[in-house]
Amino acid sequence: MKNLPCGRTTDDILQKLDEAPSLHELECRWCHQERRRLKDQDAKMLSQLRASSSADNTPEFMRNVLDKISNLRPLQRSWDAATPETRKPVRVSSTEIITRIRAEFSESRKTQLNYTEVRATDTSIPHTMWLIRCTVSMLTKSTVHEIEQEILTHVNAGLNSMVASDHLTVEITVEDVHGEVLVRSEIQA
């Protein structure tokens, strides 16, 4: 620990190195110099540590990871449903339904669809009652009502292009840019 001529120590400055300098540190040249020295030292150390991973993260390593993952099947659900027009029995997976819904969202300028979850809510076969959970981010400033209507339209179009639906519940989660939940709502169709 280094004692500075002003009576403070290096430790005092280290304790709050991430914060803005105090009034004393701004006015005291010893503290100011010491703070700068510690900041420079910190930056140099971090830059040396950062250099390691970007240079050494070889494509071969990535390939190994991705190969392992490609051998693991994603979890997906399947349901006995009915086709929309003729009501013929059809087996559909969550991935197929999500792909259709995502296709409907692809042109949206108001919302970005981040996550979709599909569930059949009835016990009868074929299933005709559905719950779709959508997590979206807003791309433009919109009201909750506008967002809800747009999501309902896209989900309806995507789902009904694939399976018959007598009842649809859409649970909507709107998240901010950091993924924190802003609004949750539920609409029925």
């Binding site: 991973s53 991705l66 969550s94 970005q112 669809l113 981040n114 996550y115 979850e117």
Partner: peptide
């Protein structure tokens, strides 16, 4: 966020993008 959501849906390509992006850190 979109990549994480798509990965949760089982999209391996989206997950691969996360592997590439987040592996160094």
């Amino acid at each position: 966020l979109a990549l994480v959501g798509r990965s949760r849906e089982g999209d391996q390509q989206a997950f691969a993008a996360l592997v590439v992006e987040l592996s160094p850190g």
